[in-house]
């Protein structure tokens, strides 16, 4: 399969996805027939009020829960049919996560936290921590390399979380309300960072939020209501996933460093 084929092929395909939860006698339908294709390089925001089913959708997309009906395919692999071990393996190679509550391991330093996904792949300590340090410098935390999560602000922790999500170069990044616990300044920083990384490395980002502000960072906004897609729009005129991202990059560290990251060099 050549490069152009890869690009045009949806990285994520959702077909007729249903999810029901049964609480005693009652059955609650949280997702009711979702169909969705997400192209490689897209930043897609799943938007909706609370209770619309967006978090449940994210869980299905990331394979954290099994759907009641329907199928989720990532890169052509039907992940809803994988078992726990295969899923873990798949997640390790293909997915990155940014969590609302950062979810850094409290007993590991910033560098060790960022290096975790590589550690789970068996990358030697020196190598993975060098990569982690480079990435932390890129997100402006070069002075916090050996700090523990409890010694950092929320914004800083989330930047560590972003570095961790991107370090293994996954195809898909899931960000679940990544700015939910942050103030507006930190929100701006964090979102810029996610978008910059995604653009630089042609990675696909699936953003879940109830904040309309978030939607403005995305190429595409999928609006959910009562478990159904009610709106699917591309807010910008130029919607190619490979177009320049219009928002200014506010991180001075990034320019100039790029060439040094062998592993991180942008694909031409």
């Amino acid at each position: 399969m050549n490069e152009s084929n890869l690009r045009s092929q949806p990285v994520l395909e959702v077909k007729g996805l249903w999810k029901e939860y049964s609480a005693g006698e009652e059955t609650v339908e949280v997702l009711r027939g979702i169909d969705l294709n997400i192209t490689r390089g897209e930043i897609c925001c799943i938007f909706g009020p609370s209770g619309s089913g967006k978090s449940t959708l994210l869980n299905q997309l990331a394979g954290l829960e099994k759907p009641t009906r329907g199928e989720v395919c990532i890169g052509g692999v039907p992940i809803s049919r994988l078992d726990e071990t295969e899923l873990t393996n798949f997640r390790q190679r293909r997915m990155g996560f940014v969590f609302q509550s950062y979810n850094l391991l409290p007993n590991l330093t910033a560098t060790e936290n960022v290096a975790l996904p590589l550690m789970f792949r068996g990358v030697p300590k020196a190598q993975r921590e060098r990569t982690a340090r480079e990435l932390l410098e890129r997100v402006g935390l070069g002075h916090r390399l050996n700090h523990f999560p409890s010694q950092m602000s929320g914004g800083q922790q989330q930047r560590v979380g972003i570095a961790r999500a991107f370090i293994a170069r996954p195809d898909l990044i899931f960000a679940d309300e990544p700015t939910g616990n942050l103030d507006s300044k930190a929100t701006l920083e964090v979102m810029n960072m996610i978008c910059t990384f995604a653009r630089d490395f042609h990675q696909t980002v699936i953003l879940v939020s109830h904040d309309p502000e978030m939607a403005s960072y995305a190429h595409r906004v999928v609006t959910l209501l009562d478990g159904q897609v009610v709106h699917d729009r591309r807010p910008r005129r130029n919607i190619s996933p490979f177009s320049e991202y219009s928002r200014p990059i506010t991180l001075p560290h990034i320019s100039g460093h790029q060439e040094e990251f062998g592993m991180w060099r942008t694909q031409a």
Partner: peptide
């Protein structure tokens, strides 16, 4: 519990 969940989400193999 949460930490183990995080590790799993980040791709830590079950056997590990």
């Amino acid at each position: 519990t949460r930490e183990i969940g995080i590790m799993k989400a980040l791709g830590c193999p079950v056997s590990d």
